[in-house]
Amino acid sequence: MNLFRTKRIIQFGQYAYPLSYLAILFVAYKWPVPGSIAAVVLSAGLWLLLKSSFCWLSKVCDEQTDLKNQLMQSQKISALGEISTGIAHEINNPLNIIMQETELMRVALHEDSTQEELYELRESLDVVFQQVERCSDITHKLLDFSRKRHPVTQTADINRLLLDMLILVQSETESKNIRIVKRFSTDIPNIKTDPPLLRQVFLNLLNNAVQAVDRDDDIFVTTWSHDDMVFAEIRDSGPGISENEIKQIFNPFYTTKPPGKGTGLGLSVSLRIVNQLGGYITVDSELGKGAAFTVHVPI
Protein backbone atom coordinates (compact mmCIF):
# COMPACT_ATOMS: atom_id res chain seq x y z
CA MET A 1 0.00 0.00 0.00
CA ASN A 2 2.81 2.39 1.02
CA LEU A 3 4.81 1.45 -2.03
CA PHE A 4 1.81 2.10 -4.26
CA ARG A 5 1.21 5.57 -2.80
CA THR A 6 4.88 6.50 -3.12
CA LYS A 7 4.89 5.31 -6.69
CA ARG A 8 1.88 7.50 -7.51
CA ILE A 9 3.54 10.56 -5.98
CA ILE A 10 6.73 10.06 -7.92
CA GLN A 11 4.85 9.32 -11.12
CA PHE A 12 2.77 12.47 -10.72
CA GLY A 13 5.81 14.45 -9.62
CA GLN A 14 7.95 13.76 -12.63
CA TYR A 15 5.73 16.14 -14.67
CA ALA A 16 4.18 18.29 -11.94
CA TYR A 17 7.35 19.35 -10.14
CA PRO A 18 9.24 20.81 -13.12
CA LEU A 19 6.02 22.46 -14.31
CA SER A 20 5.41 24.05 -10.90
CA TYR A 21 8.92 25.52 -10.99
CA LEU A 22 8.20 27.04 -14.37
CA ALA A 23 4.91 28.44 -13.08
CA ILE A 24 6.61 29.99 -10.05
CA LEU A 25 9.26 31.45 -12.30
CA PHE A 26 6.56 33.04 -14.41
CA VAL A 27 4.60 34.39 -11.40
CA ALA A 28 7.73 35.70 -9.67
CA TYR A 29 8.75 37.46 -12.88
CA LYS A 30 5.38 39.22 -13.21
CA TRP A 31 4.59 39.93 -9.51
CA PRO A 32 7.80 39.65 -7.48
CA VAL A 33 6.28 39.81 -3.94
CA PRO A 34 3.36 37.35 -4.17
CA GLY A 35 5.61 35.22 -6.40
CA SER A 36 8.26 34.82 -3.69
CA ILE A 37 5.62 34.02 -1.07
CA ALA A 38 4.15 31.38 -3.39
CA ALA A 39 7.66 29.93 -3.90
CA VAL A 40 8.24 29.62 -0.12
CA VAL A 41 4.83 28.03 0.48
CA LEU A 42 5.24 25.64 -2.41
CA SER A 43 8.70 24.53 -1.41
CA ALA A 44 7.45 23.85 2.14
CA GLY A 45 4.61 21.80 0.67
CA LEU A 46 6.97 19.89 -1.55
CA TRP A 47 9.24 19.19 1.38
CA LEU A 48 6.33 17.73 3.38
CA LEU A 49 5.19 15.60 0.48
CA LEU A 50 8.64 14.19 -0.21
CA LYS A 51 9.31 13.61 3.48
CA SER A 52 6.17 11.56 3.88
CA SER A 53 6.87 9.53 0.74
CA PHE A 54 10.36 8.90 2.08
CA CYS A 55 8.84 7.58 5.32
CA TRP A 56 6.57 5.25 3.36
CA LEU A 57 9.47 4.06 1.26
CA SER A 58 11.63 3.20 4.25
CA LYS A 59 8.72 1.28 5.77
CA VAL A 60 8.42 -0.67 2.53
CA CYS A 61 12.14 -1.43 2.59
CA ASP A 62 11.86 -2.83 6.11
CA GLU A 63 8.91 -4.96 5.09
CA GLN A 64 10.88 -6.27 2.13
CA THR A 65 13.85 -7.27 4.30
CA ASP A 66 11.49 -9.11 6.62
CA LEU A 67 9.93 -10.96 3.69
CA LYS A 68 13.35 -11.84 2.31
CA ASN A 69 14.45 -13.27 5.64
CA GLN A 70 11.28 -15.31 5.90
CA LEU A 71 11.75 -16.64 2.41
CA MET A 72 15.38 -17.51 3.04
CA GLN A 73 14.47 -19.32 6.22
CA SER A 74 11.82 -21.42 4.51
CA GLN A 75 14.20 -22.15 1.63
CA LYS A 76 16.86 -23.23 4.09
CA ILE A 77 14.45 -25.55 5.86
CA SER A 78 13.28 -27.14 2.64
CA ALA A 79 16.85 -27.59 1.40
CA LEU A 80 17.75 -29.16 4.72
CA GLY A 81 14.81 -31.52 4.32
CA GLU A 82 15.98 -32.63 0.89
CA ILE A 83 19.55 -33.06 2.05
CA SER A 84 18.49 -35.08 5.08
CA THR A 85 16.46 -37.36 2.85
CA GLY A 86 19.51 -37.93 0.68
CA ILE A 87 21.78 -38.72 3.60
CA ALA A 88 19.21 -40.94 5.29
CA HIS A 89 18.74 -42.89 2.08
CA GLU A 90 22.47 -43.26 1.62
CA ILE A 91 23.06 -44.52 5.17
CA ASN A 92 19.92 -46.67 5.37
CA ASN A 93 21.04 -48.98 2.58
CA PRO A 94 24.15 -50.24 4.38
CA LEU A 95 22.27 -50.23 7.71
CA ASN A 96 19.65 -52.48 6.20
CA ILE A 97 22.28 -54.94 5.02
CA ILE A 98 23.94 -54.92 8.44
CA MET A 99 20.61 -55.64 10.09
CA GLN A 100 19.86 -58.57 7.77
CA GLU A 101 23.31 -60.02 8.29
CA THR A 102 23.16 -59.78 12.09
CA GLU A 103 19.80 -61.54 12.06
CA LEU A 104 21.35 -64.34 10.03
CA MET A 105 24.25 -64.48 12.46
CA ARG A 106 21.88 -64.85 15.40
CA VAL A 107 20.40 -67.94 13.79
CA ALA A 108 23.75 -69.44 12.85
CA LEU A 109 25.41 -68.83 16.20
CA HIS A 110 24.50 -71.30 18.90
CA GLU A 111 26.37 -73.66 21.24
CA ASP A 112 26.99 -76.40 18.71
CA SER A 113 27.29 -74.49 15.46
CA THR A 114 28.42 -76.69 12.59
CA GLN A 115 31.50 -75.97 10.51
CA GLU A 116 29.28 -74.68 7.74
CA GLU A 117 27.47 -72.29 10.07
CA LEU A 118 30.77 -71.00 11.39
CA TYR A 119 31.81 -70.35 7.82
CA GLU A 120 28.58 -68.43 7.22
CA LEU A 121 29.19 -66.42 10.36
CA ARG A 122 32.60 -65.40 9.13
CA GLU A 123 31.12 -64.38 5.81
CA SER A 124 28.43 -62.31 7.49
CA LEU A 125 31.03 -60.59 9.63
CA ASP A 126 32.95 -59.68 6.49
CA VAL A 127 29.82 -58.16 4.97
CA VAL A 128 29.10 -56.19 8.15
CA PHE A 129 32.65 -54.89 8.13
CA GLN A 130 32.34 -53.82 4.47
CA GLN A 131 29.08 -52.00 5.12
CA VAL A 132 30.50 -50.20 8.15
CA GLU A 133 33.35 -49.08 5.93
CA ARG A 134 30.81 -47.86 3.41
CA CYS A 135 29.07 -45.82 6.12
CA SER A 136 32.31 -44.29 7.31
CA ASP A 137 33.13 -43.48 3.71
CA ILE A 138 29.86 -41.55 3.49
CA THR A 139 30.51 -39.60 6.68
CA HIS A 140 34.03 -38.81 5.53
CA LYS A 141 32.71 -37.48 2.27
CA LEU A 142 30.16 -35.38 4.15
CA LEU A 143 32.90 -33.96 6.31
CA ASP A 144 34.94 -33.25 3.23
CA PHE A 145 31.94 -31.52 1.70
CA SER A 146 31.47 -29.21 4.66
CA ARG A 147 35.19 -28.66 5.09
CA LYS A 148 36.18 -25.06 4.95
CA ARG A 149 38.67 -24.78 2.15
CA HIS A 150 41.11 -21.95 2.23
CA PRO A 151 41.56 -21.05 -1.40
CA VAL A 152 45.03 -19.83 -2.26
CA THR A 153 45.29 -17.71 -5.37
CA GLN A 154 47.90 -18.44 -8.00
CA THR A 155 48.13 -17.30 -11.57
CA ALA A 156 46.56 -19.89 -13.83
CA ASP A 157 45.56 -20.39 -17.44
CA ILE A 158 42.02 -21.73 -17.55
CA ASN A 159 42.54 -23.36 -20.96
CA ARG A 160 45.52 -25.22 -19.62
CA LEU A 161 43.63 -26.43 -16.53
CA LEU A 162 40.86 -27.76 -18.77
CA LEU A 163 43.32 -29.42 -21.13
CA ASP A 164 44.99 -31.20 -18.20
CA MET A 165 41.69 -32.59 -17.02
CA LEU A 166 40.67 -33.56 -20.57
CA ILE A 167 43.73 -35.81 -20.62
CA LEU A 168 42.39 -37.68 -17.60
CA VAL A 169 39.04 -38.41 -19.28
CA GLN A 170 40.71 -39.24 -22.58
CA SER A 171 40.85 -43.00 -22.11
CA GLU A 172 37.14 -43.01 -21.34
CA THR A 173 36.18 -40.81 -24.28
CA GLU A 174 38.33 -42.80 -26.67
CA SER A 175 36.82 -46.11 -25.64
CA LYS A 176 33.29 -44.72 -26.11
CA ASN A 177 34.37 -42.93 -29.28
CA ILE A 178 33.22 -39.58 -27.92
CA ARG A 179 34.46 -36.55 -29.78
CA ILE A 180 35.68 -33.66 -27.65
CA VAL A 181 35.24 -30.37 -29.48
CA LYS A 182 37.47 -27.71 -27.96
CA ARG A 183 36.56 -24.11 -28.64
CA PHE A 184 39.06 -22.27 -26.51
CA SER A 185 39.33 -18.53 -26.70
CA THR A 186 42.99 -17.64 -27.12
CA ASP A 187 42.80 -14.14 -25.67
CA ILE A 188 41.68 -15.10 -22.19
CA PRO A 189 43.79 -13.38 -19.57
CA ASN A 190 45.43 -15.46 -16.88
CA ILE A 191 43.24 -15.66 -13.81
CA LYS A 192 44.00 -15.53 -10.11
CA THR A 193 42.53 -18.70 -8.69
CA ASP A 194 43.24 -21.88 -6.78
CA PRO A 195 44.35 -24.32 -9.52
CA PRO A 196 43.83 -27.67 -7.75
CA LEU A 197 40.32 -26.67 -6.65
CA LEU A 198 39.36 -25.55 -10.15
CA ARG A 199 40.82 -28.76 -11.60
CA GLN A 200 38.53 -30.72 -9.30
CA VAL A 201 35.51 -28.78 -10.58
CA PHE A 202 36.42 -29.30 -14.25
CA LEU A 203 37.10 -33.00 -13.77
CA ASN A 204 33.73 -33.47 -12.04
CA LEU A 205 31.88 -31.66 -14.82
CA LEU A 206 33.75 -33.51 -17.58
CA ASN A 207 33.11 -36.82 -15.87
CA ASN A 208 29.38 -36.05 -15.66
CA ALA A 209 29.33 -35.11 -19.35
CA VAL A 210 31.15 -38.30 -20.35
CA GLN A 211 28.72 -40.41 -18.34
CA ALA A 212 25.72 -38.55 -19.76
CA VAL A 213 26.43 -39.13 -23.45
CA ASP A 214 26.17 -42.26 -25.54
CA ARG A 215 28.79 -43.70 -27.81
CA ASP A 216 29.87 -41.55 -30.77
CA ASP A 217 28.41 -38.36 -29.29
CA ASP A 218 30.09 -34.99 -28.97
CA ILE A 219 31.11 -32.96 -25.95
CA PHE A 220 31.79 -29.27 -26.49
CA VAL A 221 34.25 -27.53 -24.22
CA THR A 222 34.22 -23.77 -24.67
CA THR A 223 36.03 -20.97 -22.90
CA TRP A 224 35.69 -17.22 -23.19
CA SER A 225 36.06 -14.08 -21.15
CA HIS A 226 33.88 -11.05 -20.69
CA ASP A 227 34.63 -7.98 -18.57
CA ASP A 228 36.29 -9.29 -15.41
CA MET A 229 34.95 -12.85 -15.59
CA VAL A 230 36.13 -15.94 -17.42
CA PHE A 231 33.78 -18.72 -18.44
CA ALA A 232 34.21 -22.41 -19.12
CA GLU A 233 31.26 -24.26 -20.59
CA ILE A 234 31.00 -28.03 -20.84
CA ARG A 235 28.12 -29.02 -23.07
CA ASP A 236 26.98 -32.56 -23.70
CA SER A 237 24.37 -33.98 -26.03
CA GLY A 238 23.00 -36.39 -23.42
CA PRO A 239 19.42 -36.84 -22.23
CA GLY A 240 19.23 -33.40 -20.61
CA ILE A 241 17.81 -32.42 -17.25
CA SER A 242 14.17 -31.61 -16.53
CA GLU A 243 13.23 -28.32 -14.94
CA ASN A 244 12.32 -30.12 -11.73
CA GLU A 245 15.65 -31.92 -11.55
CA ILE A 246 17.68 -28.77 -12.15
CA LYS A 247 16.53 -27.51 -8.76
CA GLN A 248 17.92 -30.61 -7.09
CA ILE A 249 21.12 -31.47 -8.92
CA PHE A 250 23.26 -29.29 -6.68
CA ASN A 251 21.93 -30.96 -3.53
CA PRO A 252 24.39 -33.31 -1.87
CA PHE A 253 23.67 -37.00 -2.49
CA TYR A 254 21.30 -36.24 -5.35
CA THR A 255 22.26 -38.63 -8.14
CA THR A 256 20.71 -40.20 -11.20
CA LYS A 257 23.59 -42.58 -11.71
CA PRO A 258 23.24 -46.27 -10.83
CA PRO A 259 24.46 -47.25 -7.33
CA GLY A 260 28.23 -47.36 -7.12
CA LYS A 261 28.65 -45.08 -10.13
CA GLY A 262 28.49 -41.80 -8.31
CA THR A 263 28.14 -40.42 -4.81
CA GLY A 264 25.89 -37.53 -5.72
CA LEU A 265 28.44 -35.15 -4.29
CA GLY A 266 30.29 -34.09 -7.44
CA LEU A 267 28.09 -31.13 -8.35
CA SER A 268 27.44 -29.95 -4.80
CA VAL A 269 31.16 -29.97 -4.02
CA SER A 270 31.90 -28.24 -7.33
CA LEU A 271 29.39 -25.48 -6.67
CA ARG A 272 30.79 -24.99 -3.18
CA ILE A 273 34.30 -24.72 -4.54
CA VAL A 274 33.37 -22.26 -7.28
CA ASN A 275 31.46 -20.14 -4.74
CA GLN A 276 34.53 -20.10 -2.54
CA LEU A 277 36.54 -18.93 -5.53
CA GLY A 278 34.11 -16.03 -5.93
CA GLY A 279 32.19 -17.43 -8.89
CA TYR A 280 29.14 -19.52 -9.67
CA ILE A 281 27.91 -22.34 -11.92
CA THR A 282 24.96 -22.01 -14.27
CA VAL A 283 23.03 -24.79 -15.96
CA ASP A 284 21.33 -24.66 -19.31
CA SER A 285 19.37 -27.76 -20.11
CA GLU A 286 16.09 -29.16 -21.31
CA LEU A 287 14.89 -32.74 -21.49
CA GLY A 288 16.16 -34.31 -24.69
CA LYS A 289 18.39 -31.38 -25.56
CA GLY A 290 21.59 -32.11 -23.68
CA ALA A 291 23.02 -30.09 -20.84
CA ALA A 292 25.53 -27.28 -20.50
CA PHE A 293 27.28 -26.36 -17.28
CA THR A 294 29.10 -23.05 -17.22
CA VAL A 295 31.66 -22.17 -14.61
CA HIS A 296 31.99 -18.41 -14.03
CA VAL A 297 35.09 -17.31 -12.16
CA PRO A 298 36.53 -13.85 -11.62
CA ILE A 299 39.83 -12.92 -13.24
Binding site: D144, M165, I167, L168, S171, P196, R199, L203, L206
Partner: peptide
Amino acid sequence: GSVESGIEGISHGAY
Protein backbone atom coordinates in the same frame (compact mmCIF):
# COMPACT_ATOMS: atom_id res chain seq x y z
CA GLY B 1 44.48 -41.24 -17.88
CA SER B 2 41.88 -42.73 -15.58
CA VAL B 3 38.86 -40.68 -14.56
CA GLU B 4 38.22 -42.61 -11.40
CA SER B 5 41.70 -42.36 -9.96
CA GLY B 6 41.80 -38.78 -11.18
CA ILE B 7 38.69 -37.78 -9.29
CA GLU B 8 39.80 -39.68 -6.23
CA GLY B 9 43.27 -38.18 -6.27
CA ILE B 10 42.17 -34.62 -6.87
CA SER B 11 39.36 -34.74 -4.32
CA HIS B 12 41.84 -36.04 -1.78
CA GLY B 13 43.98 -33.02 -2.30
CA ALA B 14 46.50 -33.87 -5.02
CA TYR B 15 47.80 -30.60 -6.43
